[in-house]
C-alpha cells in the first residue's frame, strides 16, 4: 500500500472526471472526514484516513482490499474504473442515462444500451461522454460512454447503440474473481 505518485493521481482523476467532471474536487476535499487514495497491488482504493492507518497493520501480502476500490492500473499504466466505484460515480454524476425496465436486464448482462431501451437522458449530454446508467427507479446499474449526443439520440433509429456498456453491477456475479486482488494475492504467495 502506498500513496499515488503525481502521474498516477493525474490518471485516476482524469478518468473520474470523465464521469463526474469538476465534482472530483468534492472527492479530493471532503468536509466530513479526511479521505485518501492508496495504491495496493495495482488497485486504487479510496478510504478514510483512519481506516487506512488500521489497514497498515495488515501485511502487504495478506491485505486483500480496504475501503472502496475505484479501479486498477493496467500493465501499461492506464487506469480503468471498476464497478466497485459506482457508489461515488452515482453520487456525483453530471450526465445520466436511464434505461427502460424492458432492457434493464439486457444491460445487466453486459449489453450496450440501445435507442429502444433508452428511457431518459440528461439534456445536453455530448458525444463520447462518460455517463452513469440508472433504471427508471433511479437505482444505479453501471456506467458507460455515450455514442450520440442528446440531440442526435432523437434522430437515430431504435436498434442503434446510444450508450456503450463499460461496467454494470452484473459484474459482481460474472467477474467475482477479477474484482478483488484476492486471486492476485494467492499468486504472490
Amino acid at each position: 500500500m502506498r500513496p499515488l505518485t503525481e502521474e498516477e493521481m493525474k490518471n485516476v482523476l482524469e478518468k473520474l472526471s470523465h464521469y463526474i467532471g469538476s465534482n472530483i474536487k468534492l472527492l479530493v476535499e471532503r468536509n466530513d472526514e479526511e479521505y485518501v487514495f492508496r495504491l495496493h497491488k495495482k488497485r486504487v482504493y479510496y478510504l478514510a484516513e483512519d481506516l487506512m492507518k488500521k489497514a497498515m497493520h495488515v501485511a502487504r501480502k495478506r491485505l486483500v482490499a480496504m475501503g472502496t476500490a475505484l479501479g486498477k492500473f493496467t500493465a501499461s499504466g492506464r487506469f480503468l474504473l471498476e464497478i466497485t466505484c459506482l457508489d461515488y460515480l452515482a453520487q456525483y454524476a453530471q450526465f445520466k442515462v436511464w434505461v427502460k425496465p424492458s432492457s434493464e436486464l439486457s444491460f445487466l448482462y453486459g449489453n450496450h444500451v440501445l435507442k429502444a431501451g433508452l428511457g431518459r437522458i440528461t439534456d445536453g449530454t455530448p458525444k463520447n461522454q462518460g455517463v452513469v446508467v440508472y433504471n427508471m427507479q433511479d437505482v444505479p446499474l453501471g456506467f458507460g460512454t455515450t455514442a450520440y449526443s442528446t440531440s442526435d439520440c432523437r434522430r437515430v433509429d431504435g436498434t442503434a447503440i446510444v450508450c456503450f456498456n463499460q461496467s454494470d453491477v452484473g459484474e459482481y456475479l460474472r467477474d467475482e474473481d477479477g474484482l478483488s486482488s484476492a486471486s492476485t494475492a494467492m499468486d504472490m504467495e
Binding site: 502506498r2 500513496p3 503525481e6 485518501v36 487514495f37
Partner: peptide
C-alpha cells in the same frame, strides 16, 4: 504511506485543479 497526508492532499488538490 502515512504521516504526510497534508502534502499529499495539497498535491491532489493541485492535480485536480489541473484536470
Amino acid at each position: 504511506v502515512t504521516g504526510a497526508e497534508g502534502v499529499e492532499k495539497e498535491k491532489l488538490a493541485k492535480v485536480a485543479d489541473r484536470v
